[in-house]
Write a protein that binds this DNA or RNA. Structure first.
Lengths: 168, 168
DNA sequence: TTAAACTTTCAAAACTTATTGAAAGTTTTT
DNA sequence: AAAAACTTTCAATAAGTTTTGAAAGTTTAA
């Protein structure tokens, strides 16, 4: 397989994975493009490479910066902005985890905590089932939350090292 | 807060979380409904409770069965099919992880492995960057895969116990 | 065998989300 | 101060996804 072909396969696969996990396909593709580019790229070049519009490129780039996955670079004597991707995979994983935790896990934890405190008649099967389910989901969500928080602080080697010592 | 209100808040929140993670909103809502229901419900009752059409209810129920999250129940002397949800949270988490691993992680691992073996000129920065990125993502994906496989086999207490001993 | 009870299918419609591109905005250069 | 180089915005539109509901299919009962 040629490098160019491999690269476009990767961009496609990354985009697909992104969209299956609720991340905009274009965003994942731009990220893949920059990840595999040895040099920083301009908006124009990115538009060209992925055949997307200026507006789309601009919004996507801003979002990626918001997620902490890419950065702007200014070249001396040039007006254009160049973009490049953070290349360390562990950092990428952490940034994504952090962003999604903030946007999705935190709000649901809030709701679950509220719902855990609903009072009712212990004899009522409706109430008992509700209570039991919520409590148990709440516990799991709390554990996921704790795990993520630790992961967000963790250094790569320490993290994987520890996990795989147990998981063998 | 009243039980009925709490229940509908939960259904809504669960649906929202689902849709943010690429799971059909209705599917997550039906799941939430059955999770918090003390008794098995018929298609008719589910349609009624969530104001959804027969077709939608039927497809969603089949999908949930496909994910191993709910089961059919036949009551003696009745023609109707009743549905109820697996209530153990740990099992739910495992089923979801398993399904998504199969559908999404496995295919991307296959692509990454293919792409890892692309050969090229070590002096070419294009090639070197591509190679480095793919290899490092491949390594992370492999680790995620290993972790999931272990998790899929794990018993609840053992799993969380071990994780949180380290994560403290 | 016919009818009733129930389930499944699927094309069309509704809804949601992503993308375009032209116009407006900003900054730098001349 | 005007033009050029570049970035941002956003209403319109396109693309993708979900939902509907009526018709077809299946199973059981009479």
């Amino acid at each position: 397989m040629e490098l160019a072909e491999a690269k476009s396969k990767f961009i496609e696969a990354w985009g697909k994975l992104g969209s299956e996990w609720g991340i905009n396909r274009t965003m994942a593709q731009v990220h893949a493009l920059l990840l595999t580019s040895p040099v920083a790229m301009t908006t124009e070049e990115i538009m060209e490479a992925l055949s997307i519009s200026r507006g789309n490129a601009n919004m996507t780039l801003r979002d990626l910066i918001g997620w902490g996955l890419i950065e702007k670079q200014h070249k001396a004597g040039e007006r254009k902005e160049y973009f490049f991707a953070e290349k360390d995979t562990w950092t990428i994983a952490r940034q994504v985890a952090q962003e999604r935790k903030k946007r999705e896990l935190d709000p649901i934890l809030k709701v679950l905590n509220e719902l855990s405190s609903v009072k009712g008649d212990e004899k009522d099967p409706e109430y008992k089932t509700f209570k039991t389910s919520i409590t148990s989901i709440n516990k799991l969500a709390g554990n996921v939350n704790k795990t993520l928080e630790t992961m967000l602080k963790a250094e790569e080697n320490w993290f994987w090292g520890s996990i795989f010592k147990i998981f063998k």
